[in-house]
Amino acid sequence: MKNDIILSGVGGQGILSIAATIGLAAVSNDLFIKQSEVHGMSQRGGDVQSHLRLSDKPVSSDLIPFGKADLIISVEPMESLRYLPWLSDNGWLVTNSNPFINIPDYPPLDEILEEIKKIRNHIIIDADGIAKEAGSPRSGNIVILGAASPFIEMPFESLEKALKKLFGKKGNHVVEDNLNALHAGRECSAGIRI
């Protein structure tokens, strides 16, 4: 088993929470893991990515080679396209449809979505809208994780447990909000054949 995952977004959008959740779940499944993240200057509204590698064998490189990622999980649509050089031919791209516009030359959203639709395996969801509907408006990132969860080779329950552990300190309502978001996201990709 090997899952090479690129997480992408804009600094401050919560991709490290997604990474931490998958990471905790991987440890509980006794998988080998390496997860490389970006700290420092880029976190100030710049593009950020995390390379997350799960395997039942030891993982050497902290970085995923080009063309080898099984999955891109993106909380921002334009950012999902930035990492296409890493995506394998059969890989999946799961992204939020809501743009984060903090640059003057942000391209038209419909053109971005057109590009995403050219990818063979893609899922585009309105994560923020779904999060709001689920009563967890701040958990759009976890909705995306839910939508991507069928493509992560781990029992879904281990992601639930990881969320409980990760957000437990912040109180029950935060845990519940995130679990709701995870389930709502999961439903978006229900029925998709892998």
């Binding site: 710049g46 063309g67 296409l84 640059i103």
Partner: peptide, 30 residues
Amino acid sequence: PAIVAKAMGFPLSFGQEVPSLVKMRPPSFC
């Protein structure tokens, strides 16, 4: 991994080019 594979003379894998509409997103003031 790509730089090292190239130095070793191994074949390189690659996904797809980044579409040209993708713009730079430098860090900025909050």
